[in-house]
Design a protein around this nucleic acid. Structure first.
Length: 530
DNA sequence: ATTATTGTTGAGTTG
DNA sequence: GCAACTCAACAATAA
């Protein structure tokens, strides 16, 4: 059938290692690379200006990379079916190539609607798996080896030329068009392929040396972690590229006798695996976004209330727990927080504040530049202990503070109103003698909030309620089914020390920049769009 | 990849 | 010289 082949970009904003692009190019037909700004998508509570800005930067670079190959990105704004219908009317679409997006219910429904529409219109819709996540998975058995095989497959280098469908590009919409007002995120990570590759390179070559030791404290994590998360979330770097580059870096560090670095990268590689393991959960069960995975927890916490002042205090960083507040304020300003502190903030909302996880998860999502539905909701539920299959983890915000920020440097940076307090009182200012507080110019409830709960009592209360539920006989039966559906099969299975077979390096295109050691990543030359 | 509690061990101190 | 004791560090365990 004649007509153009649309490459519908969603959360895969790159040209390299892009299965849909390769499939479209292989057709030999004119190519129409398309990104649709969908108002309904940006109106979702999880989505925010910082993600929009990141995507926009990624799209500008994607456009340049596509233009360099002869077929620039076409931007459209509107409902996906409307946009595709219009293109079909004018150009005639032979096929639509996209990736299988594991997203919120909204994108799942949208993709199904587009699928129906395409079928009716006689258009072939070809969706490619991404991240080694499997669609319509029957059983979790053998998942890990399937995933690893996916990661080992050779990366695809984008063709140097693409036949253009010659469709006029539209301007980028403004964030205001979607009700996305200003967002105070001065330290947001920059979007785009170049930034993503640079994250990967600097992490694997330099920053990741003490990753294992430094990932837990927000003081060190910002530098010692890969910071690849927004790039993986929006696909500016593929999971496979990251995995293969990490394997190479690990081998290299081991060869050089840098055991700490090699172990750190090993730990990073295992996190890439868990990353996808969690996305698979949402892929298998979209209701994880909206309902307790284990129904025994329904009704355990009060129904969510949008205007609950505790929710606002929590998300705005004025709980009265300095370390927690520092984490929230840092997150707001940077769009990123290390994994452990994400867990702590979520656990505090769910356990100490006894809030249903849904609204806290939504608010948190909007603050994450790297919001990834398949990571976010399964973890929100895990930290809230509503999965039934994970041991409840109730973090003590004061203990974490003392452990992760003993000198209070992180607190002083983000909660400057407390900076005059001596280290020993910084973690729990309500315990400080009145004279010490007075000397530091602190009046609890005025210059800084009084802690909003007695965290020890609240934790104990949450613990006893949750464990009372778990003792019920029906709990275990249901939990077993959940474990069968979603649980990892990996525990007890020893790691195989098998190393990646040496890969034949694909010929680098003329515009590739060679990294200082071979990570096997193809990087676009800094694109000066023409 | 939590926390608080309880138990164990061993070094160091005391009488 | 040694029993008795304290304390820190670490492991196991229940919730």
């Amino acid at each position: 059938m004649s007509g153009v082949h649309v490459i519908w970009f969603k959360r895969d904003l790159r040209v390299h290692d892009h299965a849909a692009l390769m499939a479209a190019a292989a057709s030999g037909a004119p190519i129409l690379p398309l990104y649709i700004f969908e108002p309904g998508y940006w109106a979702l509570p999880e989505h925010s200006r910082r993600q929009f800005d990141f995507v926009k930067e990624a799209l500008e670079e994607l456009d340049a990379a596509l233009k360099a190959r002869g077929s620039g990105l076409v931007i459209r704004t509107g409902n996906a079916i409307d946009v595709l219908s219009e293109i079909h009317r004018r150009q005639g679409i032979a096929a639509i190539h996209a990736h299988e997006e594991t997203g919120l219910q909204w994108t799942f429904d949208r993709d199904r609607a587009v699928g129906r529409w395409a079928r009716n219109a006689g258009i072939s819709l070809r969706e490619q798996p991404q991240n080694g996540v499997q669609r319509a998975l029957k059983s979790r058995d053998g998942w890990a080896s399937h995933w690893e095989a996916f990661m080992r497959r050779p990366r695809m280098v984008a063709p140097e030329t693409l036949l253009s469908a010659q469709v006029q590009a539209e301007d980028f919409p403004l964030p205001q068009d979607f009700g996305l007002g200003p967002d105070d995120c001065p330290q947001r990570q920059k979007g785009g392929r170049a930034a993503g590759v640079e994250c990967l390179r600097s992490f694997l070559e330099v920053r990741g040396q003490a990753y294992q030791r430094q990932m837990s404290s927000p003081l060190t994590a910002a530098d010692a972690c890969s910071r690849l998360s927004p790039h993986l979330a929006f696909g500016t770097v593929s999971m496979r590229e990251a995995w293969q580059a990490a394997q190479r870096a690990k081998e290299m560090h081991a060869r050089e006798g840098n055991a700490e670095f090699a172990a750190s990268i090993g730990s990073f590689i295992s996190r890439l695996h868990w990353h996808c393991h969690f996305i698979q959960k949402l892929e298998d069960q979209t209701s994880i976004e909206s309902r307790n995975l284990h129904p025994a927890y329904d009704g355990l916490r009060p129904a969510p209330e949008e205007d609950d002042p505790r929710l606002a205090a929590w998300i705005e960083g004025r709980t009265g727990f300095p370390f927690l507040d520092a984490c929230m304020r840092s997150l707001k300003a940077t769009g990123w927080l290390n994994f452990r502190m994400r867990a702590m903030t979520m656990a505090f909302a769910a356990h100490h504040l006894w809030l249903d996880w849904k609204l806290p998860a939504e608010r948190l999502a909007g603050l994450f530049t790297d919001f990834e539905p398949g990571i976010h909701y399964p973890h929100a539920q895990m930290q809230s202990a509503t999965t039934g299959i994970n041991t409840p983890r109730i973090y003590n915000p004061v203990k974490q503070s003392r452990d992760q920020d003993p000198e209070g440097a992180f607190i002083r940076r983000w909660v400057p109103e407390l900076s005059a307090l001596p280290d020993e009182w910084l973690h729990a200012p309500w315990e400080a003698p009145a004279s010490v507080r007075a000397r530091a110019g602190i009046v609890l409830g005025q210059t800084y909030p009084m802690r909003m709960v007695d965290h020890m009592a609240a934790a104990e209360e949450a613990r006893s309620r949750i464990f009372a539920l778990r003792r019920n006989a029906e709990h275990a039966a249901e939990a077993e089914e959940i474990q069968a559906r979603h649980g990892s099969r990996r525990s007890g299975i020893p790691f195989r020390g098998r190393q990646a077979a040496p890969k034949k390096r694909a010929p680098a295109p003329a515009d590739a920049i060679q990294l200082s050691f071979d990570l096997g990543i193809i990087q676009e030359r800094r694109a000066h769009a023409s």
